[in-house]
Amino acid sequence: MTGLVHRALMYGGQDDVLHVTVPFLRAGLETDEAILAVLPLAHIEALRDVFGPDAASMQFADATEWYEHPVRTIAAFDDFARSKAPRRVRALAEPVWTGRSPVETVEWHRYEAVANIAFAHYGAQAICLYDRHHLDDEVISGALRTHPEVIDRGGARNSGAFVEPTVFNIECDRPPLPPPRGAVESLPIATVDDLHDLRAFVTERARRHGQADGALGNLLIAVTEVATNALRHGAPPIELSVWTEDAALVCEVTDHGHWGHDALLGLLPPQSAAAGGFGLWAARMLVDVVHVRTGGSGTVVRLRTAL
C-alpha cells in the first residue's frame, strides 16, 4: 500500500486550522473516505459550523478523552480503520501535551512515530495539529521528527527532520531507567511453575497499597506475560521486583538475556490474538506504561500502574 500520509500542522490560530483542514476533509467527502476528527471541542464546533449537514457523515471525538494512553489510542484508531475497511481513512488529530510529565511526553512522541508504521497498510491520510503558540519548543521539534511532512497555508512540504520510526523508538529507550525510589521487594523466578506464586506475591503487595481489583487483575495478566517472556526468551537468573513511587505500583522483571527483539515489538496492534507480539501488545494495553530496556547486560521490563 501507499503508507500513511502523516503531516503535522503547526497552527497559530483557529483560522489556520480551518484554512488547511476544511479542503482536506472536503476532498475526503468527495471520495467517500471515512473521516475521523479527534480534536479539542472548539475545533470540532468550528468544523461542524463549516460543514453543516455534511458533518453528519464525519466522526468527531473529544481529544481529551481520546488521548489518555498511547497504546490504547493507537488501538482505537486501528479499530476505526478496521471497521471502515475497505474505505480509506482521513483523520485529523490533536494530541494532548499539556500536563504531561517528561516520561509521558516521550511516550506520546513515540506514539506519533509508531503511527507511521501502524497505519501504513490502510492507505490513510492524517493531519496532526500542533498549537505553536502554546506548546513547548521540544514538543514542536519532536513533532518534526515524527512526521515526514508538515503542512500549512502554503501547502505540504518535507519536515526536514523526520527520523525513521524504528530509530526514533530506539532513541526513546536510550536513557537508562531511573533507579527505584521506593523500598523494593523481590522474588526470584526459576520456572513457569513459579508464575502462580508470582501472582500471589504481586497481589499481596498491590492490596497492601490499595490497588483496585480491576487494575490489579490487569496488572497480574501483564506481569505474568512479561515473566513468561523472560522465562521463554531470556536467561536466568530472572527476578521480579515490586515497589511504589509517585502513587504508582511498579513491577519490574529482569533477566540476563538479550531479547534482540524487533524494535517495535508490542507497539503495533496485532492482526489477531494469534499473531506474534500479541502478548506484549496486550500487556502494554493493560497497564499505564511498559518500559523495556534490553542490551548486553540483560533485559529489564518495567510495568507501572497508578494506585
Binding site: 508464575l195 501472582r199 497480574l220 495478566i221 505474568t224 506475560e225 513468561t228 489477531s272 490474538a273 494469534a274 500479541f278 502478548g279 496486550a282 500487556a283
Partner: peptide
C-alpha cells in the same frame, strides 16, 4: 480465576 495472554493466543490460534 486466571487466564494468561499466552492461553488466549493459543485459543485464538486453535480457533483459526
Amino acid at each position: 480465576r486466571f487466564i494468561d495472554l499466552g492461553a488466549l493466543n493459543l485459543l485464538a490460534g486453535h480457533a483459526m
